[in-house]
Write a protein that binds this DNA or RNA. Structure first.
Lengths: 112, 112
DNA sequence: GCGATACATCGACAATCATCAATATATCGC
DNA sequence: GCGATATATTGATGATTGTCGATGTATCGC
């Protein structure tokens, strides 16, 4: 398969600002999913932690600062990855996360 | 009272981008509330409808294009107003909504 | 005051979500 | 293969959310 989540990519890629024409239902649907990934304080902190790091961040370094259990962190990271805001790379036993600046920029563009 | 919702205003006003330092819990909490206002397709379409209008938009003109009942639209508009994304002004029987560009820009700034 | 109109609130319900303990899966070193 | 480790998935539960019908509140014209 080319992409696990295809719908949000299209809308976010076209970067149509909210201030332009009204959104149709499909655009609104996929954009809402993207913003929903940011609508949780734990996920915002996880994203912030990854974005403020110089390079990649190991999943094992996310559990303790988030104050949540390992399954819960894994759950939230899956949501961030599915939203395209974070890229996931597995190396051996460890999983490394890296911010997806283009996708974040696309979301930002929608707001202006 | 000075403001019904005080917490989100502070964080959004300071415009700290996610890419800078990690968010503390309070910042993440109020930012998540702001993004949650954008995490619903109906609200995104309502906001888009208002933002793309030249001036104000009457509440009576939001029900039909949104495809939701009047109480539901009122509910969503309250969420947008509480998030500070839309300003509300009552004139006589009608309520007029206007986009809050500064607040939207502040949210955008948080993303980068 | 009275009826009509525009919007908000209430109450209820179904759906979604965040969370954790328990368990499963994958990979390493030996 | 075997034990150990890192992460993902499952199952369950309490909390939150979107929705609507019914009702409440505020404002207008008369």
């Amino acid at each position: 398969m080319a992409a696990t989540v295809s719908a949000p990519i299209d809308v976010l890629a076209c970067c149509a600002p909210v201030s332009a024409d009204p959104l149709d239902e499909q655009q609104a649907e996929s954009l809402a999913r993207a913003f929903a990934a940011l609508a949780d304080p734990i996920r915002l902190r996880l994203l912030s932690f990854i974005t403020s790091a110089d390079d990649q961040v190991c999943a094992c370094d996310l559990v303790e600062p988030s104050g949540r259990s390992q399954p819960t962190v894994s759950h939230h990271m899956k949501i961030l990855v599915d939203a395209g805001l974070v890229d996931r790379e597995k190396r051996g036993l460890w999983v490394w996360y890296r911010a997806a600046p283009q996708r974040i920029a696309a979301l930002r563009a929608v707001l202006g």
